[in-house]
């Protein structure tokens, strides 16, 4: 089990600090939530972890690997997967293809074998197809298996987004507002999925979410961001009692 540590990370966009001097430790096997008002820098920190942004200063380490300058595909190969806040699906492809793409690095046959498509390629495809089917089953996406993703309802696309991240079989899963724009039933579904993931796969989860009720219920640990700075960290109880946090949230709402 690997620990993710973020040390004094600063991220600047043309003079504006999206993150300033952010430090946090993500313990393995837990659900860690990052909360904060809009524009607080939550997505930015996920972007830094997953390699889409590179911190202006500071360092991100995953176990003994430095992620500070890694690119997304390198990060993915370390077992870190991400579900995006704004859907980033392959909208022209079927759900199945979207998930099979997440098995990209596991399909270890070469170009010639792929061209002939007997033996190894066929076997690996079938094996990974079975794996994908497991995720489809798990995320209850069976009715949509062969539908084009772009035509599905928003809630389901969100679920595909999470499913695709899961298909990468990550040790660390970054979920960016997986429940945004969902009704209460759909939210319950997603929460159930998250709890299942932890239970069945023992995946470390970083959850970014606006719904404080959900966050307080399921998180093991919470970091609160405001204007790119960590203003409070702790267990849900500790955070709920933190004055700075209350101030930020009341000032915001």
């Amino acid at each position: 089990m690997t620990t993710l540590s973020i040390d004094n990370v600063t991220l600047t966009f043309g003079g504006l600090n999206a993150l300033s001097d952010v430090s946090m430790i993500i313990e393995p096997g837990l659900i860690t939530s990052i909360i904060g008002p809009n524009g607080a820098g939550k997505t930015s920190i996920l972007n830094c972890i997953s390699g889409f942004y590179h911190p202006t200063a500071g360092e991100i380490r995953y176990g003994d690997r430095r992620l500070t300058h890694a690119s997304p595909h390198q990060v993915t190969k370390l077992g870190i997967a991400r579900a995006f806040q704004n859907l980033e699906l392959f909208s022209g492809l079927s759900v199945l293809d979207n998930l099979m793409l997440a098995r990209h690095t596991n399909l270890k046959y070469n170009f010639l074998q792929a061209m002939i498509y007997v033996g190894k390629a066929s076997r690996l495809e079938a094996e990974n197809r079975a794996y994908v089917e497991g995720v489809i089953d798990f995320m209850e996406l069976e009715p949509y298996r062969n539908s084009t993703v772009g035509n599905l309802a928003y809630g389901i696309q969100k679920r595909v987004e999470v499913a695709r991240a899961l298909t990468l079989d990550p040790q660390l899963l970054l979920l960016d507002e997986p429940m945004a724009g969902m009704n209460i039933e759909e939210k319950e579904d997603v929460v159930r999925f998250i709890m299942d993931i932890i239970k069945e796969r023992n995946t470390t989860i970083i959850l970014v979410e606006h719904d404080l009720g959900v966050v307080m219920d399921i998180s093991d640990y919470i970091h609160v961001l405001d204007f790119g700075e960590v203003i409070g960290s702790g267990t849900p109880e500790e955070v709920a009692a933190n004055e700075k946090v209350i101030e930020a949230y009341i000032g915001e709402d």
Partner: peptide, 24 residues
């Protein structure tokens, strides 16, 4: 119908996400 074909549609539809799938 293998990774060598799917990766093409992946970069067409969304190359950020393709990156996140572990391909360059």
């Amino acid at each position: 119908r293998t990774r060598y074909g799917r990766c093409l549609s992946a970069v067409r539809d969304n190359d950020r996400a393709a990156d996140a799938m572990g391909m360059h």
